[in-house]
Design a protein around this nucleic acid. Structure first.
Length: 184
DNA sequence: AAGAGAAGCAACCGCTCACTC
DNA sequence: CGAGTGAGCGGTTGCTTCTCT
């Protein structure tokens, strides 16, 4: 059986208070990110590590760009979604200052509707073709991908969605290779 | 002005993956 | 090699704010 992510200690849930935010920021500024499980106790927070990580990544990080998405960002999200499917973290990785949660929310609330209004299927980015929700790719080992219940296109011919899909989007020339972390 | 419904967004949940022992 | 554990991701929920009647 799987353990719950946090022991059944009394932990706060719901919206974060200013004080909690401050504690989390102070702690991370002093000690850096990492070891989210032990962070709450060390920082004096009654939250689970998962919740702390989410709050930091999606809201408190100093390099976050808040506010409306620009047209260029919208365009990029649409194109990247056509390539990658719902791989929000990968998409967000191409948008400096944006988080996967933010991109996902923006997609679901704005862009999806926009595409529908244009007569496109937001799942496969094709005109007038409605399909079931896509789960085009699942991560395999080491940032490679395998196609699953593909709606379609011969994705299993290659394990790289970018390789396989850029040909259908010739105007898009993005370097989507994912570098391995530097090893000291 | 107030109530209802819609939209937006922050946060939670559960699953998977990667790493360690 | 398999079990255990921590971290990350994507889907979903639910609260808040906005808009319409």
């Amino acid at each position: 059986m799987r353990k719950p992510c946090c022991e059944k200690k009394e932990t706060n849930k719901g919206a974060w208070s200013k004080q909690e935010d401050q504690k989390l920021m102070d702690y991370i500024q002093k000690h850096g990110e990492g070891c989210w499980r032990s962070l709450p106790e060390a920082a004096g927070l009654l939250r689970c590590g998962k919740s702390c990580r989410l709050r930091w990544v999606n809201y408190l990080r100093p390099d976050l760009k808040r506010g409306n998405f620009g047209e260029d960002e919208e365009d990029l999200i649409v194109k990247l979604h056509a390539l990658l499917g719902n791989r929000w973290s990968l998409i967000a990785g191409r948008l400096p200052g944006r988080t996967d949660n933010e991109v996902k929310n923006y997609w679901n609330t704005h862009l999806k509707r926009k595409l529908v209004q244009l007569g496109m299927d937001p799942n496969n980015h094709r005109l007038g073709q409605l399909t079931r929700p896509s789960k085009s790719f699942v991560p395999n080992n080491n940032h490679t991908y395998k196609a699953v219940n593909s709606n379609s296109q011969a994705l299993n011919s290659t394990s790289d969605p970018v390789e396989s899909n850029t040909s259908s989007l010739p105007d898009l020339n993005l370097d989507l290779t994912i570098g391995l972390p530097l090893v000291n």
